[in-house]
C-alpha cells in the first residue's frame, strides 16, 4: 500500500510540467523513505532525476518498495484537472494496475479523482558516479532561463566557461558571436546573487534547446545550480524547498 498527500499540490503539477517535454514513459520508484525517478530522453542525451523525501509530505506511507510505470504525457493531462490550490493525494495498492490521484480543495469543497492506468516500462537505469564537481555556479533561475532563451535565438550551442572570477555563456553563429559573463556577486539582495565555487575551471559546449527544456523547472526554485566537471555531463539542479531536488543531466558536445 502506498499513499502520499502533498498539501501544496501545485509543486507536483509543476514537476510534471518540467519533465514532460523530455521524458515520455517513466518508472516512478516508491520507497518507504520517499519517491524518486530517473529517466532519459529518447536520444539518451539528457536525463531527469527526481528525489522527493517523505518528510515533505503531509502524510506518507509506503509499506514496501514499488515501481509505478506511468505515461508522463497522460499524467500531465490528469494534472490539468488540478486547481493550483489543490492538495494532491497519490494512492496505489500492492501490485497495482492504476495510480489513484485525488485533488482536493478544502476551501471550495471540490474533489476530483482519477485512476491513471499504469504501464510496464522496460527502462535502462544508469549508475551516476559520485562526482566532485570542480565548478558549481548558483544563479537566479529566472536569469539563467532568460540567458538561455535569448542565446538560443542566436545559436544552437552555448559554451560555458568557468573560472574563479566569472561564469561565461558564449555563442557563435551565423549572426555573429558574443558572450554573457556573470561575476561572483554576493550582494545583499539574495535574488541577485551569483555564487561561484570553482576549484578548477571548466569549458564545455551544450545544446541550448535542452537547457531551455530544463528551465521549465525554474518555477520550482529561485535558484538554479550548475555543476560542471570537464569530463562529466552538466548537472542543472533545482532544489524544491522542504521536499527534495530535481536534477537534469546533459551530455556535452565535444569538438573532434
Amino acid at each position: 500500500m502506498f499513499e502520499a498527500k502533498l498539501t501544496e499540490g501545485l509543486i507536483l503539477k509543476k514537476i510534471v510540467e518540467s519533465i514532460k517535454d523530455i521524458v515520455t514513459d517513466v518508472n516512478i520508484d516508491i520507497s518507504p523513505s520517499g519517491i524518486s525517478l530517473q529517466a532519459m530522453d529518447s536520444s539518451h542525451v539528457a536525463l531527469v532525476s527526481l528525489n522527493l523525501s517523505m518528510d515533505g509530505f503531509e502524510h506518507y506511507r509506503a509499506d514496501t518498495n514499488m515501481v509505478l510505470g506511468v505515461s508522463i504525457a497522460n499524467l500531465a493531462k490528469v494534472m490539468k484537472l488540478a486547481d493550483n490550490n489543490d492538495q494532491i493525494t497519490l494512492q496505489a495498492d500492492q501490485e497495482a494496475t492504476h495510480l489513484k490521484i485525488i485533488f482536493e480543495n478544502p476551501k471550495t469543497e471540490r474533489t476530483t479523482e482519477f485512476n491513471l492506468n499504469l504501464i510496464t516500462i522496460d527502462s535502462e537505469h544508469l549508475a551516476i558516479p559520485e562526482t566532485e564537481y570542480s565548478s558549481v555556479v548558483t544563479i537566479n533561475s529566472g536569469e539563467f532561463s532568460k540567458i538561455c532563451k535569448e542565446l538560443f535565438s542566436l545559436s544552437e550551442t552555448v559554451q560555458i566557461t568557468t573560472n574563479t572570477d566569472y561564469v561565461q555563456f558564449s555563442v557563435e553563429g551565423e549572426v555573429g558571436s558574443g558572450q554573457v559573463r556573470l561575476g561572483h556577486n554576493d550582494s545583499e539582495k539574495k535574488e541577485d546573487q551569483t555564487i561561484l565555487e570553482v576549484s578548477e575551471s571548466v569549458q564545455q559546449q551544450f545544446a541550448i534547446r535542452y537547457l531551455n527544456m530544463f528551465n521549465k523547472a525554474s518555477t520550482l526554485s529561485s535558484f538554479t545550480r550548475l555543476c560542471l566537471h570537464q569530463e562529466q555531463p552538466l548537472v542543472v539542479e533545482f532544489k524544491i524547498d522542504n521536499l527534495g531536488v530535481l536534477k537534469y543531466f546533459l551530455a556535452p558536445k565535444i569538438s573532434d
Binding site: 539518451h44 536525463l47 537505469h125 544508469l126 555531463p233 558536445k253
Partner: peptide
C-alpha cells in the same frame, strides 16, 4: 561544431 555525446559515454547501466 561539436559532436553531441550520449550519456552512455559517461554513465554505465546499473
Amino acid at each position: 561544431k561539436g559532436v553531441q555525446k550520449s550519456l552512455g559515454t559517461f554513465f554505465k547501466k546499473s
